[in-house]
Amino acid sequence: MTGTARSVVVVGGTAGIGREIARRYATVGDDVVLTGRDAHRAATVAKECGARGLALDLARPREIAAALEGIQRVDALVLAAISRDENSVAEYDIEAALALVTLKLVGYTEVVHALRPRLGADAAVVLFGGQARARPYPGSTTVTTVNAGVDGMVRTLAAELAPVRVNAVHPGIVGDSPYWRDKPPAALEGIRSRTPTGRLAGMADVVDAVDFLLRNGAVNGVGLPVDGGWLLR
């Protein structure tokens, strides 16, 4: 995004990829609001990035509209908040499953619902899913289901919000992200060796993908993998 400053909202912008997205747009002069569950942390990170901080908890969807009341206009909305969940059918944790489903499916949708009147005709929305949607692993019962659900959300929101564009980004293993960078090198090497590009995706790759989805006016209703072709092997 270049030229006239835009109003950018990054939900889940206090750490990891969300933080890097907020920093990118604040650096080029956009008016950025980032959110996090903790008000103090959101304010601290926002100050570091040159943005504004706002407390918002997607796991408490009935409070979302009130938390967003102060936002007047939205040109770009990025829903980057995620939660890690280890769950299986054999040992099913209902509370953990409900928390993740609420955060990503109900929470994401309620943010869009609350901000819908403030989205301009040329606004764009990007939701975060993940490649567990297409490659399940032990313990991904809820994660896989929810990330596949993000694709369904993208299609229905793109239809309902038109002409506002709605897309999703589906990162694979992001090697330099806070979650992955401290994993055993051997485990990451095994994934890297099975990736056709010969390297893992980095946070900068995901930020670039989000920027593309926000900028390109002809891309709508799609889920974009960012995994170096990991699913090909």
Rank of each mutant, 00 (worst) to 15 (best):
Y179A: 12
W180H: 10
D122G: 10
D75S: 08
I173M: 08
I94F: 13
L105K: 09
A132E: 03
K104V: 02
I82N: 14
A51M: 06
M153W: 06
V143F: 05
V74D: 01
V101D: 06
N87W: 04
D151T: 08
A132C: 05
D151I: 14
L54C: 03
L115Y: 00
L54Q: 02
H170N: 04
V106A: 02
A158P: 03
V126M: 13
D122C: 07
V78Y: 08
A148E: 07
E91R: 09
A159L: 09
N167K: 03
I71A: 00
C49Q: 04
P117F: 01
K47I: 13
A159R: 09
V125E: 00
K47R: 14
A67C: 08
V89P: 03
T44R: 11
A66M: 12
A158F: 06
R116Q: 14
A59S: 14
I71E: 00
P163K: 09
P117V: 02
A76I: 12
S83R: 15
L127N: 06
A66D: 15
V126L: 07
L103Y: 10
G70T: 11
A51S: 15
T109E: 10
T156M: 10
P136S: 05
N167G: 02
E86I: 15
R60I: 15
V169A: 11
V89T: 14
A55M: 03
L58I: 10
A90H: 12
V74I: 14
A114V: 03
L115Q: 01
V166Q: 02
A123F: 07
A51V: 06
V150P: 03
R60D: 05
L119K: 06
N167D: 15
D75W: 15
E110K: 00
R118V: 00
Q131L: 15
G107M: 00
A42E: 14
A80C: 15
E69N: 03
G175E: 06
N167A: 03
Y137P: 09
G107Q: 04
E91S: 09
L105P: 15
L105A: 07
R52L: 01
G152C: 05
H40R: 15
A158Y: 01
Y92F: 15
V154P: 12
I82H: 10
A123C: 11
D122E: 07
C49S: 13
F128N: 06
T144C: 02
H40D: 09
E86G: 00
I173G: 00
V169G: 09
A76M: 11
L68Y: 00
A65P: 08
A59T: 10
W180M: 14
A168H: 07
V45R: 09
Q131T: 13
A51K: 05
V78N: 00
T141P: 03
A81R: 04
L103M: 15
G175H: 07
Y179H: 13
V150I: 14
L157P: 09
H170L: 12
P136K: 10
A51F: 09
S140G: 06
D176K: 11
